Every structure is written in structure tokens, then in C-alpha cells.
Simulated assay, not measured.
Amino acid sequence: MSDSHRSYTDLVRDFYLVFQPIVLVDPSLKSQIEDYEVLLREKSTNAFPYKDFEYIIGNNEGNSVLLQWFSAELRHVCLCMPQVKIDINLNPQQLLFDSTLNFLNNLEDLADRINVEITETPSRVASMNNATMTEKLREIVGLGFSATLDDVDSGDNNLNVVTQSAPILIVSSSHCLHLMANRLHK
């Protein structure tokens, strides 16, 4: 085992998951939990591990270690709570690695319970353009997952990606949905 692999494993051991309920409120103000957004946290700070996360997803090897752990955690939750639907976040950078497709293939049997949200984080890789993003979204949806662009109009999730990918995804931004509705009515 390489030193970097051991380092990635040690970092991931400090992570845990938080399940934030997404509540649907109808016009009569009745509410129910629609699903849960899965949030990554580190034990030492109880916050998102920005620095360690960026380091780990910097290459396929680190991303693979993280996603193997993540897959095991998600399977455990889905086994313990068989009716729960969850939203997982993937950084656009992760879409460029084979380990991410392997992760999704491994969870394909749970695809009807998992929505994949692509975060707005700007990609550090020049090869992540709108066409590449659309191709990756098609792969995710092709495996049976639903896909969402998170916080459209910030970071890499811009209106060009939305218009190219519209038939295959859900958009997470009331601002963007309003813009799209206005555009359709013109």
C-alpha cells in the first residue's frame, strides 16, 4: 500500500455523515420529510473538511478511497432505513475519475433512492466544460439515478449547462427556474 493511500485512508477515518432532512411544505403548510441530503463532516471540527476533501479528490486514487468508504456508509444507511431517499453531493472534479463511475455502478441497485447533486464548486480541471458535464450527467441518469445541478448560477453550474442538460436533470435553484420559465414564455 502506498504512503498516499495510507494518508487518504487516515483522512477518511476522520469523516462522518450527517443526514439533513429536506422538508416539503404544501400550500396548507403541512409538512413532511421528502428526503435527506447527505453532508460530509470531519470529527475534529464537525464541519465540512474543505482542505482534506480537496486533497483527497485531487486524483483518482484518493477519490477511490473516499468513495469506497462513502459507498459502505450509504449502503448501511439504506439497509437500516429502507424507505429513506437521499441526495448525495459530487464535486464536478470527481466526475472526471473512473472511481466515481465505479462508485455509482456499485450503488446502481439503490439508484431509485439516490439523487446525485453536482455541486456548484468550480472545477480545477480545464477539461470540465459544459459538454463534458452534460455527458457525465447522461451517464449518471443512464444508471438510473436522478441528477441535480446544485445552486445554479454560481460556480460551474451556469445556465448554459442547464439548457444543454435540461431534458435529463432537475435544477436546484428557484432563481434559475424563474429565469427558465421567463425564457420559455418569450
Rank of each mutant, 00 (worst) to 15 (best):
M1W: 05
M1E: 09
S2L: 06
S4Y: 10
H5G: 00
R6P: 00
R6Y: 06
S7W: 04
Y8T: 07
D10S: 13
L11A: 13
V12M: 05
D14V: 02
F15V: 02
F15G: 04
L17H: 10
L17T: 10
V18K: 12
V18F: 04
V18N: 09
P21N: 13
I22E: 09
I22G: 04
V23H: 09
L24Y: 12
V25L: 09
V25D: 02
V25T: 15
D26W: 09
P27C: 05
S28A: 13
S28R: 13
L29C: 08
L29I: 04
L29S: 13
K30P: 00
I33C: 08
I33S: 06
D35T: 09
L40R: 10
R41C: 13
E42S: 06
K43C: 05
K43T: 10
S44N: 13
N46C: 09
A47P: 00
P49K: 11
P49Q: 12
K51Q: 11
F53R: 10
Y55G: 02
Y55P: 01
I57K: 13
E61S: 08
V65M: 09
V65S: 07
F70V: 05
S71A: 15
S71H: 11
S71Q: 14
S71V: 04
A72L: 14
A72W: 06
E73I: 04
E73H: 10
R75L: 06
H76A: 13
H76F: 11
H76I: 07
C80I: 03
P82R: 08
V84K: 15
K85Y: 11
N89T: 10
L90W: 08
L90H: 05
N91C: 13
Q94E: 15
L95E: 06
L96R: 11
F97Y: 15
F97R: 01
F97E: 02
D98I: 02
T100Y: 01
L101C: 01
L101P: 00
L101N: 01
N102D: 15
F103L: 07
L104D: 12
L104I: 10
N106Q: 08
L107D: 01
E108I: 08
E108Q: 15
D109V: 09
A111Q: 10
D112I: 01
D112G: 03
R113S: 14
R113H: 14
I114V: 14
I118S: 04
I118R: 03
T121P: 01
S123K: 06
R124I: 12
V125P: 00
V125D: 13
S127R: 10
A131S: 11
T132E: 13
T132L: 14
T132C: 08
M133S: 00
E135D: 08
E135A: 09
K136M: 12
R138Q: 11
R138A: 04
I140L: 07
V141R: 15
V141G: 07
G142Q: 11
G144I: 07
F145M: 03
F145W: 05
T148D: 00
L149R: 00
D153P: 00
S154H: 07
D156C: 12
D156F: 01
N157K: 07
N158S: 05
L159A: 02
T163I: 04
T163L: 10
S165A: 15
A166M: 03
P167I: 03
I170F: 02
I170E: 00
V171S: 08
V171E: 02
S173V: 01
S173R: 01
H175E: 05
H178A: 10
H178R: 12
M180Y: 01
M180L: 15
R183D: 03
R183F: 02
H185C: 02
K186T: 09
K186G: 06
